[in-house]
Design a protein around this nucleic acid. Sequence first.
DNA 1: CGCGCACTGTAACTTTGGTTACAGAACTTC
DNA 2: GAAGTTCTGTAACCAAAGTTACAGTGCGCG
Lengths: 227, 227
Amino acid sequence: MPRNELPIVTRLSPEGRARFDRAAKAHCFPAGQVAIVKGEAITGAYIVETGRLRVFSLSKEGCEATLYTIAPGETCVLAINSLFSAVPYPGHVVAEETTRILYVPGETWRALFRTESEIQNLTLKALSVAVMRLMHELESLHGRSVRNRLADLLIARRAADGSVRMTQAKIAAELGTAREVVARCLVDWSQRGIVECHRGLIRIIDPAYFSSNASLCEPTAMMPALD
Amino acid sequence: MPRNELPIVTRLSPEGRARFDRAAKAHCFPAGQVAIVKGEAITGAYIVETGRLRVFSLSKEGCEATLYTIAPGETCVLAINSLFSAVPYPGHVVAEETTRILYVPGETWRALFRTESEIQNLTLKALSVAVMRLMHELESLHGRSVRNRLADLLIARRAADGSVRMTQAKIAAELGTAREVVARCLVDWSQRGIVECHRGLIRIIDPAYFSSNASLCEPTAMMPALD
DNA sequence: CGCGCACTGTAACTTTGGTTACAGAACTTC
DNA sequence: GAAGTTCTGTAACCAAAGTTACAGTGCGCG
């Protein structure tokens, strides 16, 4: 999603847009790079143009837990959060792929928030979506087995051809479980012809099998436009 | 917190306040009453004056999971969420104690949001606090044992004298676990002189024992004033 | 082409926590 | 104060998933 197509840019008032353009800076994170470390002070908001950022928490024991990911066109709520409240950033952020972002200094964002309804909307929407996703995640985390959550992840991350390019280790880290547990499920499913496993690649053969657990596949779908 | 002391009321502009007063309605839920059922459409925001509302999700299997509680002076984010986005309310709400609320129609809230910075702040703050709490909850849910989460709950809910007036069944429901598991922990702790158990009452004898896990005791503490 | 590395497959074991089942204690109400 | 209800205490059992340990396999690179 190139800069000039971002709704946030196109829907601003002319003055707002000028101000936005003056202040916003593009930045690019290579795949795998750590963007923010937990506790870091945040000085601005950022909007993902291309790629994907992953936000996760890391307990002392090194156990990772993905909170959610930020797709193109979305902003990081936590940053917005920190922006309006001076709380340090409560999670780690890493670029999952090569990711281009647009950085907007906090000062600019806050100023635009007071007058630009598009910025108000985007801010509210980002927070609302985050609340929804976190609730969903929370709900799934104690009501559902690792199996179910793995199924969700595969469905949510599959490409058009039904393939998911992730190693089992990465998947396990995202789900906050052990690689062996992921392997157990995948072996079981592949024996039953539901998926095919290759090195760094899982292909979903029978998506219908997972359909009962379908959820969060289209995160934006549960969040109609504001206003 | 009586109506005239609510910051949201006192800090409005005179016109805003007049509008607010015209539209806001007081309502009272007796203890245990269901306030909102999941999926219900929301027509307004509400602010808790006294008492406490509990928001939880309920899976098909009847497994309950407390998402968070709303204390006096706070508003329900989910309602605000629904208010600005027309998503149905994603959880159940029940009054834990007799709870007085102030109901503000969505129309009024949205109108005030455009002009009253206090309403903007309250809205943002409510959403931000919710995001923080949910993240915290999420983090604790997979990184930590039931023991730890129970310790957190006891610390967070204790009265000034260290007593917690809840039945084990209620605690278990909040933690999304079984009563027996709660009993196991409590028996263990009471044998070691850390707590005392009575019917409907747990007294914390040695709070220092829990101090290492202290967290979320003062949820508002992590959310400094906006602006 | 073969060496090493990163990833996957597999098994046995342990821990945690949910389930079932019931006994007894405390409060409530008639 | 007897009966019923609600809450707590306890034990045995079971399932899910985390842990440990290692064997096999595809892949890249020299």
